[in-house]
Design a protein around this nucleic acid. Sequence first.
RNA 1: GGGGACGUAGCUCAAUUGGUUAGAGCACCGGACUGUCGAUCCGGAGGUUGCGGGUUCGACCCCCGUCGUCCUCGCCA
Length: 584
Amino acid sequence: MMRTHTCGELRAAHAGTTVTLCGWVQNRRDHGGLTFVDLRDRHGVTQFVVEPDAPQAARDEAAKVRLEWVVRITGVVRARPTESRNKDRATGEVEIVVTAFEVLNAAEPVPVALAAGERSGEDQELKYRYLVFRRPEMREALLRRARMNHVVRDHMVTRGFTEVETPSLLRSTPEGARDYLVPSRVHPGSFYALLQSPQLLKQLLMIGGMDRYWQIVRCFRDEDLRADRQPEFTQLDVEMSFCDESDVQDVAETLVHRLLKEIAGVDVPRPFPHVTFSDAMERFGSDKPDLRFGLEVRDVSEIVRESPFVVFHDVVAAGGVVRAIAVPAKHAFTRKDLDSLRTVVADRGAKGVAWCRIAEPDWTGPAAKHLSPAMRAALVQATGAETGGTLLFVAGTREIAIPATGDLRLHLGSHFGLRDPKSFAPVWVDQFPLLEWDADGKRWNACHHPFTAPLAEDVALLASDPGKVRARAYDLAMNGLELLGGSIRIHQPEIQASMFRLLGISDEEAQARFGWFVEALRYGAPPHGGFAAGMDRLAAVLAGLTSIRDVIAFPKTAAATDLMTGAPSTVDGKQLAELGIRLV
RNA sequence: GGGGACGUAGCUCAAUUGGUUAGAGCACCGGACUGUCGAUCCGGAGGUUGCGGGUUCGACCCCCGUCGUCCUCGCCA
C-alpha cells in the first residue's frame, strides 16, 4: 500500500496517528530549521512540517523537492497550535510531522499557471491539458460533470428508462450539418458518416417496443466552432412511447430541476414557465429568452406610425416595425453608452438605436421632438416607461428589428449586471413553427428536424399554408441558452411522406436516403417523442461558465485542432492506398 | 470564407511619439533564516520581441505577407 490517506481527509481527530500520503508538491516554505511542504492530490492539500530533529535523509529530500515533484511522505498527525491554523483549508487544523520523505518523481518547471484563479494562454492550456487538471477550477469542473452524469443516470433509471448504446459509424444523410466521413477499407470508395445525432435510431428503438430509452452519447458535426460549440459534443438522448408533450417535458423538467438543486445548489420553483415561440420573439426577440431580468420588448409600430420622424414613419409605411425597450430610471446611461448601442444592433443589420429620456418637464433626446403628446402617452402605456427612465427604439423589417432588439436586450442585461451566473431562469418555449422559408434556396426547411410532428389542428394547413403549421416541438431555454430540445415525432408513414415532399425531397429521394427508416414506420410505429440535451452546455451553465471548453477534459481549438496530439494529421501513403484514397 | 482582438524570459505581464544595454512578479539556480501557509531577505542566470520581408540613421512599436490562439458573422435540419 503506497498511502494510508488522501491529502483531503485528515482532521484534528486523527492526531497521534502515523500516516503516509502521496501527491504533488504544491508549495515549499524553507525557514532554515523548519520546512513546510504543502502536498496536493485531487482530494485536497495537507501541510507537512520537517522539523530540525527529523531524520537527516528526510531533511535532505525535503530540501531538494521543487514545485510539482511527486513525493510520498510519512509522519505523525498533529493538531496545529490555534494561532497557526489555516481556516481556508479543510485540513487546516492539522499538520504532519515528517519522519520519512521519499521522492517518487522529479518535475521540470511546468509551462502553465496552476494556482487557483490563474489562467495561462489558451493555446498553452490546450497543449498541456493534463497539467490544467491539477488546478482546482478544472478539477472541480470534471468532478462536477461526473456528479451531473450520475444524477442523470439515476434519474433516467428511476423513471424506467433503458440505456441502449447505438453506433457511431452510420450512413451519411443529406440533411443537417456537414458529416465527418470515415472511409471504408473493405469497400473502397464508400464512407461511413460519424453520428450527428441518434435521432432515427432512437425512433427505431420505439418502433421495436423498447418503450423508454436513454443514452449519453457523443455526436459529431463538421461545422465551424464557437465558445459553446465543439466538433464532437455530448448529448443526453431520450425517447419514450405513448406519450404527449407533457410526459416528455415532465421527465426533462424534473431532471433539470434535480441538476439545478444537486449540482448548482439552487432550488428553482416548479413548474417552469411556458412561453410560445411567437410570444418569445415578440417579448424577448429570441427563441431562447433570458428570463433573469425584465426589460421586455414592445412593438410600438402603430403608435409611431404617423410620427414625422422619417425613420419611424418610412419603416412602418414599408411594412416594417418599430420596437421599444423601456429602461427604468435606476439604470443610468451615459451619452457614450447610448452611442455605443448602435454597434450592438448593427450586427443584425439595424441602422441604429433611437432614444429619448422621460424627463420632467419635457422629454429629451433625439427622438423626443418627433413624438406628439398623444404618442408619448401611448408609449408610456405600452412600454411601462417611467419618469426618469429611457426609451430605446429599433426600427426595421421584422427579420431585422426582432433579433436586433433581442440582442439589445441581452446587451442591456449584461451592461446593467442583471445576468447573474449564479441565478437560473428555465423556461419552456413551445409551439414552434414546423417549417421556415429558406429565401435563398427557395424552399421550406424543417425548424426542428423533418421527423417532428405537426400540431393535430394544423395538419390541414400543411397543404394550404405550410408556414402557419405549428410543430409539436419544445425547447427548454435557460439564461439565454438552449439547454434541450425535443418533439413528438411523426409516427404515420403518410404524414412522414408528405413532410418529405414539403421539404422538396422527392419520393424516390426519400426512399433512397431514408427508405430504411420510412419502411419501419409501416410496421406498427407507436406514437412517440423525446428530447436531446447538450451536456456540455448544461455542465457549463450549471457552473456559471460561458465556454464549454472549461467543462471538457480535452477540447479542440476554434480551428478544430487538438494542440496536444496534433490532430488532425497527415497519414502514410500506405494507409491511404489501403483505403483506395488519393489526395488531390 | 468574412470581420475583430491578441502573440515580448519557463509562466503571467510591462516597455512614453519610432530612440541608451527590452523590465517586473512568479518559477528556476546559489545563499540566509525555527511557525509558515502567495513566507521573508540577499545574490544569480534566463530574450531569434511567433516567423519572413520591407520602410528608417534607428523597429517590440510603422507597412506587407505568413503561422498560431481567442471572439464573432456565415454555417450548426
